Amino acid sequence: MASYGSVYQEGKNPHKYRIQFYYGKNPNGKPKKYSKMITANGNTEKQRKKDAERQLAEYRDEILSGNYIKPEKLLLKDFINDWREQYAVHKLAHSTLELYDLQLKTRIIPTLGHYHLEEITPFIIQSFLNDLKKDGARRDGKNEALKGSSINFVRRVVKNVFSRAVEWKFIKENPVIIKKEKESSSAGNVYSKDELSELLKYLPKLELGWRLFFQIAVTCGLRKGELMGLQWEDIDLDTGIIHVRHSLSYSNNTVNGFILKKPKSEKSIRYISLPSDIIPLLRKFHEQRNREKNMLSDLWEGGEYFFVFSNEFGKPYSKRYPLTKWNRFTKRFGLRKIRLHDLRHTNATFLLLNKVDLKTVSSRLGHSRASFTADVYAHKTKETDKQASELFATL
């Protein structure tokens, strides 16, 4: 059966071409037309036309082979609604979905949402991701480009959406074939040994609950969500061991306003020994909280949970309150301002500099692999390696 096709530039964009291919006949006897918009690569018109003809040949071969999936005229922004309803709300953790939604609403839909699914090519995806490397790409008021890790997260969201489009046979191939950006592993901004001593000197001036919150953060290396999800049944006050088995995240779609789930990975479920000086403080705090809970009686809002760190009524603190308390504390006592999460990095750095083995540090942090710990704290492991080699110089 005879077939023929054509290519021509469409619109003002020199890279935009329409390819058309005629094969077979419709019920009315007229030739059946297959047509789609493409992005043609090349610096000159001749190069772009040649690339468009190449894509036309591939398009024709695909139809003649019987592998062609006729795309629906569906805009990406409309497909994202289906993706969210049929996949995301069922498969993604609520906190993850919130992060996905943020990128979809602020970056992906405004830039790519007007395209039909079949129009989006690797070239368009590459251009979209390249724009994130330009100054002004951040949304926090800083005139800077996004970091590699942030660009990779946006890429991950787009790839997930198109993976479902392939899976549900709206398109044949996923256009997100672009390689990930290089990410710089960082141990954050940590306190020195002297600054750590200053921190521990001023912590007793806080109310007992917040003293313990920050002290456990820096001496045990727990993530904020793990601290917020810690319950009294997770602490063995006789042995001085914490069982880290939950992480708390926030959600507006639940009755309580929060979700208690497993930590970041299977290795994050772990047992951690507490410093001996913390145990009597925890006993005292436990007794205090028990009294307060009994006094509140029906006013208790913790329900089935008895969190170690919560407001006076037993409910978890609001999402940003621990950060607010930390910033107020450092300002009040003139401590160098670092992020609350950097107490975790301070913990790891201090242990490595004091020659605690990498496997132990990795286990206490709940990392999935010791190699990941080594990558993040590479500069510190180099210091300890140098110290180890110098031992032989004294022989």
Results as ranks from 00 to 15, higher is better:
residue 1 M to H: 15
residue 2 A to N: 14
residue 2 A to H: 15
residue 6 S to A: 11
residue 9 Q to T: 11
residue 14 P to K: 03
residue 15 H to K: 12
residue 17 Y to A: 08
residue 18 R to F: 13
residue 23 Y to E: 05
residue 23 Y to P: 04
residue 24 G to H: 03
residue 33 K to T: 14
residue 35 S to Y: 15
residue 37 M to I: 13
residue 39 T to Q: 11
residue 42 G to C: 09
residue 42 G to P: 08
residue 42 G to N: 04
residue 43 N to I: 14
residue 53 E to K: 11
residue 56 L to C: 05
residue 56 L to Q: 06
residue 61 D to C: 13
residue 61 D to V: 12
residue 64 L to I: 06
residue 65 S to V: 11
residue 68 Y to E: 04
residue 70 K to W: 05
residue 70 K to S: 13
residue 72 E to H: 02
residue 76 L to M: 12
residue 79 F to P: 00
residue 85 E to S: 08
residue 87 Y to K: 00
residue 89 V to S: 09
residue 90 H to P: 05
residue 92 L to T: 03
residue 92 L to M: 07
residue 93 A to L: 10
residue 94 H to N: 15
residue 98 E to K: 10
residue 100 Y to P: 00
residue 100 Y to K: 06
residue 101 D to P: 10
residue 106 T to K: 15
residue 107 R to V: 07
residue 108 I to R: 03
residue 109 I to Q: 07
residue 109 I to T: 15
residue 113 G to N: 07
residue 114 H to V: 08
residue 115 Y to V: 10
residue 118 E to N: 09
residue 120 I to P: 03
residue 125 I to K: 08
residue 126 Q to M: 13
residue 127 S to E: 13
residue 128 F to I: 12
residue 134 K to V: 08
residue 137 A to P: 03
residue 137 A to F: 08
residue 138 R to C: 11
residue 139 R to M: 08
residue 139 R to Q: 12
residue 140 D to F: 01
residue 140 D to I: 02
residue 142 K to V: 04
residue 143 N to C: 13
residue 145 A to H: 05
residue 150 S to G: 10
residue 151 I to A: 01
residue 152 N to T: 00
residue 155 R to D: 10
residue 157 V to Y: 04
residue 165 A to W: 00
residue 165 A to Q: 07
residue 168 W to S: 14
residue 169 K to I: 03
residue 171 I to Q: 02
residue 172 K to E: 11
residue 175 P to E: 01
residue 175 P to V: 07
residue 178 I to F: 02
residue 179 K to L: 14
residue 190 V to G: 02
residue 192 S to F: 04
residue 195 E to R: 02
residue 195 E to W: 03
residue 197 S to G: 09
residue 198 E to Y: 12
residue 198 E to M: 14
residue 198 E to D: 13
residue 211 R to G: 04
residue 212 L to Y: 10
residue 213 F to W: 09
residue 214 F to P: 09
residue 217 A to C: 07
residue 219 T to A: 09
residue 219 T to K: 10
residue 224 K to C: 02
residue 228 M to W: 08
residue 232 W to C: 08
residue 236 D to R: 09
residue 240 G to C: 10
residue 241 I to Y: 06
residue 246 H to D: 13
residue 247 S to I: 04
residue 251 S to R: 01
residue 254 T to C: 07
residue 258 F to H: 06
residue 263 P to D: 02
residue 264 K to L: 03
residue 267 K to Q: 05
residue 271 Y to N: 10
residue 272 I to E: 00
residue 279 I to C: 01
residue 280 P to F: 00
residue 283 R to A: 06
residue 294 N to S: 13
residue 297 S to Q: 12
residue 300 W to P: 02
residue 301 E to K: 10
residue 301 E to L: 12
residue 301 E to T: 09
residue 302 G to Q: 01
residue 310 S to T: 01
residue 313 F to Q: 09
residue 315 K to W: 06
residue 317 Y to A: 00
residue 319 K to F: 07
residue 330 T to P: 07
residue 331 K to N: 05
residue 335 L to W: 00
residue 336 R to T: 06
residue 340 L to D: 00
residue 341 H to Q: 01
residue 349 T to D: 04
residue 352 L to C: 06
residue 357 D to W: 14
residue 357 D to C: 08
residue 359 K to T: 14
residue 367 H to N: 01
residue 369 R to G: 11
residue 375 D to I: 02
residue 375 D to E: 12
residue 378 A to K: 01
residue 378 A to G: 06
residue 379 H to Y: 04
residue 389 S to P: 05
residue 391 L to A: 07
residue 394 T to K: 14
residue 395 L to E: 09
